[in-house]
Design a protein around this nucleic acid. Sequence first.
RNA 1: GGAGAGGUGGCUGAGCGGCUGAAAGCGACGGUUUGCUAAACCGUUGUAGAGACUAAAUCUCUACCCCGGGUUCGAAUCCCGGCCUCUCCGCCA
Length: 425
Amino acid sequence: MLDINFIRNNPDRVKQAIVHKHENAASIDQILELDTQRRSAIHACEQLKSKRNEKSKEVSELKKKGQNASAIIEETKKIGDEIKSYEEKLSGLEPQINNLLLRIPNIPATDVPIGKDAEDNVIVKAWGQRKTFDFAPMSHWELGRILNILDLERSSKISGSGFILLKGYGAKLERALFNFMLDVHTREHGYTELFPPFLVNRASMTGTGQLPKLEDDMYRTATDDLFLVPTAEVPVTNIHRDEILSYKEIPLYYTAYTPCFRREAGSYGKDTRGIIRVHQFNKVELVKIVKPETSYNELESLLLNAEKILQLLGLEYRVAKLCTGDMSFAAAKCYDIEVWAPGVGKFLEVSSCSNFEDFQARRMNIRFRDEDGKLRFVHTLNGSGLALPRTVIALLETYQQKDGSVTVPEVLQPYMGGINVIVKK
RNA sequence: GGAGAGGUGGCUGAGCGGCUGAAAGCGACGGUUUGCUAAACCGUUGUAGAGACUAAAUCUCUACCCCGGGUUCGAAUCCCGGCCUCUCCGCCA
């Protein structure tokens, strides 16, 4: 959420930013108009309240002396009615303003390239050698079927399309990967491991910015109005909602494994084969809560922490700095990490590392008391470290051999019971 | 799911419908004293909003004692609804 004061003082800058993010800037004028009405109503209302307080005091003094106060009481009743009418006006205006404000996207940072869509993203880094094959590399779904580790026919029988059933070494590989990732982030990168709830309430979903805009993309349990987490970002960042932290306790680094649930509404027909785009997937997430002046350095190190996983797995990847049009609603700056999948012949997004500045902190009301005792909003960041299905895709497709077996990278072998190759059982 | 108890500032804990933004204690911060530390003593110690040419400092006002309504001239205090916590019972992995 943006600061209403900031919008008031910089309406053109905000509108420009919204246009760059390909959202509708018209609501800014509407917000400003409603805000003017709101403030004048507050002013009038508060003056009346002040008057009422004075009169009430008079009543109390008269009564103490045993005198009749009915004239003043009558007068004050009328003031009370007027106050009520202003309060009604305000209780109409405030949710309107708030709803509009919650739908205004964050402003991109100044060094974010202005652009329309993924075409305009800027590749800022490429790592690893392109793997060459002396045979035609297979796709992960072919490999999964041959090795009997991935069974998409049966998962769609159980749940529907977009769900994954892993078997045998496929299941083990999944578990190996998120354990490995959590170990790297906790041991080498200083993150605290968390295991959060997988169902969260509306306030949490609003805090990180999934609601109100993206409700259609979320799984919701109707009876209790709880949402299945679309990412660990939601429960983890909301840990400190409505809290005041000390400058001594931040930065906070958290990592958590959760499954992630996404309806993927509106993406029908995209990436329908295999496990590139699914409704439920596993992910290890990195979340940082930091001081504003450090957040851009923290973003760079967060990105490196996520990249480290691919480096250790020996998978080729590249890093894209997203343009304004491709960034998410809440982000001020965002890098995507894309891993090369030779079987499908594509780079696949496995991580999005974002700095939200104080956009989420404002929604969640997470502040900290700085060295001078002042209250300020923290900055929040997060990134996948990493999303599993696409990492599995890259792994299977990159390490496949002519006979369909897949070698296991050395770092994963201890997590896989010591085996160095997955063969058909 | 049933029965009961309770939610007050950073924490503990008072609070009669007006004199309570809130006693007292603890903690924290500043100061005096001290070679240093401790102790003692003195002082300070919430947040948000609106307004004052106002960006900062300052001042004025308003609101906030879990949240939302209501009663009243006036609510931390009375009434209703909700949320949360604790205890007991039931059910259950």
